[in-house]
């Protein structure tokens, strides 16, 4: 739910000294609101995460450009609905191995927060139907398979001993298509099987 408003400079004014002012509007309310950190700025983006943190509201944003004595009409976004349009981050993934199995513990991503000291809100609390798409790659057999899980603990059994497996996980929420960012690939080897070593 980190919501950054971005825009491009007016046509023909790339490189010119143009300043911008951003305002935002909560659908169903009455006034356009401004954000002091995004008034008369030179950059072409504004972090509106704090202002749009109530994900059940819908929002508009508007940007005005000023160049010398010229002031543009406001360029306005469409209706933005954080609950539907946010990109869900990856879960935290912890792997532990055994001879023929790998245990995967997943921790749901957290909602963006302005102040690190704030208490965290898990995306699981926001999306009760949050699921995980787990992809597993067997490096020895060069094979990949995947599973869709809802709980946060998964044990991959019947694996080959002494084999490198790579795992990456993406969170997803059924319903309207939402972008999701998979986790970094993590690779672990299953332990050697002493029994097979004796043969």
């Amino acid at each position: 739910m980190k919501n950054i408003l971005q825009w491009s400079p007016p046509e023909g004014l790339q490189g010119a000294e143009v300043t911008y002012t951003v305002r935002y509007f909560i659908y169903g309310q009455k006034k356009w609101l401004s954000k002091s950190e995004c008034r008369n700025i030179l950059r072409t983006y504004c972090n509106l995460s704090a202002e749009t943190s109530d994900y059940e509201h819908q929002y508009y944003a508007r940007v005005k450009a000023v160049w010398g004595t010229n002031c543009s009409k406001g360029a306005q976004t469409g209706r933005f609905y954080p609950f539907l349009e946010t990109r869900i981050g990856p879960p935290e993934v912890a792997l532990t191995t055994d001879k023929k199995s790998i245990s995967i513990v997943l921790t749901a991503p957290e909602k963006w927060k302005k102040d690190p000291e704030e208490s965290s809100i898990s995306m699981q609390q926001i999306y009760s139907n949050l699921k995980y798409h787990v992809s597993i790659y067997n490096a020895k057999a060069n094979k990949t398979w995947s599973q869709c899980v809802t709980n946060q603990m998964l044990v991959l059994s019947w694996l080959e001993p002494d084999t490198l497996y790579c795992v990456h996980v993406a969170s997803f929420v059924p319903g309207p298509p939402r972008l999701a960012q998979p986790s970094e690939k993590q690779c672990v080897s299953t332990l050697k099987d002493p029994a097979s070593a004796l043969k």
Binding site: F25, Y27, G28, Q29, K30, Q58, Y60, G78, R79
Partner: peptide, 14 residues
């Protein structure tokens, strides 16, 4: 969504 919501100019009412 975009076509329909763009026609709604009364943004102060939900």
């Amino acid at each position: 969504k975009d076509v329909v919501q763009a026609q709604d100019n009364i943004t102060g009412v939900r």
